[in-house]
């Protein structure tokens, strides 16, 4: 993350605001008792940074008590070679209040797993599968964590920075599938003769 990407908001999330600072956001009351840090993204969108242990509780509170009924996107950003490396990002939308909110959770390399939010928003299921496919981030307690876009058994996660720009084709998996299938046919043919 570059330094001008986010900036801490003066005064923090809740509590008495000094003059001139923006008022406490609507959802601050709903999140009382939860640990998070409020920032403003470079695009002006409100952003909450949260540790992995508190991520699921925060998302549940945002959905149940703050009216964020829709999770539009679950994705990640690879900030290699900085550490922590991955910024897992949830984009939330409240249709009721016409508000958007970003929740960011930093994950370290070698320990890239996070709680799944597919139990809160069923639509996040495939978003998390795509995130797993592209970044290799495991989602704990996900109902069906398989690759979404690339063939099963592919060895790489293409949106990681170490993946070569030229790409690595998964045609090896197809050849393997084809070879096994033909071997099965030949065995069947031999058995019937």
């Amino acid at each position: 993350m570059t330094s001008n990407d986010t900036r801490p908001e003066a005064g923090g999330a809740a509590g008495p605001q000094p003059d001139g600072a923006p008022a406490a956001p609507r959802w601050a009351a709903a999140l009382s008792g939860l640990e998070y840090k409020q920032l403003v993204g470079a695009d002006g969108m409100a952003t909450l940074e949260v540790a992995r242990e508190h991520l699921h509780a925060l998302l549940a509170a945002l959905k149940e008590r703050a009216g964020f009924a829709m999770c539009t996107l679950v994705t990640a950003v690879d900030h290699y070679p900085k550490a922590p490396r991955f910024a897992l990002t949830h984009q939330l939308l409240s249709l009721e209040h016409n508000e958007r909110l970003r929740v960011r959770c930093w994950l370290r390399e070698g320990d890239e797993h996070a709680p799944s939010c597919a139990d809160l928003w069923p639509g996040a299921n495939w978003s998390e599968r795509e995130c797993f496919d592209m970044f290799g981030i495991r989602f704990d307690a996900h109902p069906d964590l398989r690759r979404l876009l690339l063939p099963q058994g592919y060895d790489h996660h293409p949106l990681r920075k170490e993946f070569p720009h030229a790409g690595i084709e998964p045609d090896r998996l197809y050849r393997q599938w084809d070879k096994q299938r033909r071997a099965g046919w030949n065995a069947e043919e031999g058995a019937t003769r």
Binding site: L149, L150, P151, E169, P170, D171, L173, Y174, W177, D178
Partner: peptide
């Protein structure tokens, strides 16, 4: 045709 679809197409 993606590689994921290739097995189905074949």
């Amino acid at each position: 045709l993606t590689w994921k679809m290739a097995t189905a197409a074949r």
